[in-house]
Design a protein around this nucleic acid. Structure first.
Lengths: 231, 231
DNA sequence: GCGCCCCCAATCATCGATTATTTTTGAATC
DNA sequence: GATTCAAAAATAATCGATGATTGGGGGCGC
């Protein structure tokens, strides 16, 4: 899986950097779900040749952000209420499993990293009037916090699945809750999860995480229903 | 995800057919874990250009059969006891979840398809003296049976995860249990699963499936430990 | 003799052009 | 007016060649 946090520092191949750029464009909704991705035009607008572009799109297909049909090109993966429901459901199950494992295996240093990630996240301003850059920083910190929660689970494949699902879930949130100001105190929820995790309260932690994910899911689902009706 | 059953009938792009050929080569152990995949030599031996080759390898990376390192080429994903353990663990959890959902949602036609798949599977001869082709047919039927069990779960993403994990698990089995004659009556286990599923006995079905997966896992793990020591 | 640096061969990454496929368009027919 | 077929335009897939990057081996200084 491509690293989402570090922006390809040294040994970055052109394809890899493209993956990052395209991922951001899709996640933030610059490229809306269902959009056809014309190769020639993309080649022109990104200033690259077809080979790295194809490779980047192929890698994004793995993350479920792009859909390929042989001989018929690429498009941004469409959205649907059913797909969102499945993403949320799987996030609950898989992140829950990962969290339980992490609590079982994590050491003190891991607890420290969770607190650090939480602190970093809380330092991000996030309101309706935040600049794009500020929001972007919050997204990164938010992603990092959730990743850290399950980082100690010793199951790399599972972490990868969770990352993929989180990507897809974030895309929905960022597109359909774009105008939606945070209605609930998300920061408190994060703090509660971190607290329960560090106190090694397995049941409590996974219950809060589940609620956290499902609440977000319901909010998106509502917005999605309205959005799809009006379109 | 690429279709594993149909061998790219009509609108097959060169890359797609390559994916199938390479997947088979890796799954059956012609290309052993860890092998470096030299692009030039492969280009020559498959008689294609670099573009479709790269694309095929990229798609196989998604399935976890090939590992890419920027600027340093491709290699067949290595194996390890830890990885195998995680694959088995995740198969148990995810296929279990999928099976429970399928039992809940499946209709009569689905039951019929399960029985059909089981029948097809039982008609395959499988012994130490089977020809390669016969073994290949069994592998396909086996895969189809397991896929059918969870086909009614209404969770396409979950099915995809299961398919990926099954691929990885099958690779281990086919490489490390190559000489190993089936020690137990696998056919009976399959019949028992199908029976429990059709009788809608959720707990019983998932318990048998779990045992089925874990037993195979233990056998592979044993062979793997010996194999890795002797190498 | 040992370690470091630079150069060369091998190999991966990228490009621009060519070929094959799909989609559109437009004219002829029913 | 709708339908069907064929040619043309658009677009995707593939190729062969060119431009980077890496890793190994010989030469130089210490």
């Amino acid at each position: 899986m491509t690293d989402r946090t570090a922006e390809a520092p040294s040994s970055a191949t052109l394809s890899s950097t493209l993956v990052g750029r395209l991922r951001n464009a899709i996640m933030r909704g610059d490229l809306m779900p269902g959009t056809r991705l014309n190769l020639d035009r993309m080649r022109a607008s990104f200033g690259v040749s077809l080979s790295p572009l194809r490779e980047a799109l192929c890698r994004l297909e793995n993350d479920g952000l792009v859909t390929i049909v042989d001989q018929r090109g690429y498009r941004v993966t469409p959205v649907s209420a059913e797909n969102l429901a499945e993403v949320i459901r799987l996030r609950v199950e898989l992140e829950g499993m990962a969290l339980r494992e992490a609590i079982q295996h994590g050491d003190i240093a891991w607890e420290g990293r969770i607190l650090a990630a939480l602190h970093q996240l809380n330092r991000c301003k996030r309101s309706a009037r935040s600049s794009i850059e500020e929001q972007e920083v919050w997204e990164l910190a938010h992603r990092a916090f959730h990743a850290e929660l399950i980082a100690a689970c010793r199951m790399p494949l599972l972490q990868q699945f969770c990352a993929t699902l989180h990507d897809q879930s974030d895309r929905y949130r960022r597109i359909f809750l774009k105008t939606h100001t945070p209605d609930r105190n998300v920061a408190e929820e994060h703090a509660a999860i971190a607290d329960a995790v560090i106190k090694r309260r397995v049941r409590e932690a996974s219950a809060i995480l589940r609620a956290h994910i499902e609440r977000t899911g319901r909010n998106i689902q509502t917005a999605l229903d309205h959005g799809l009706c009006s379109t």
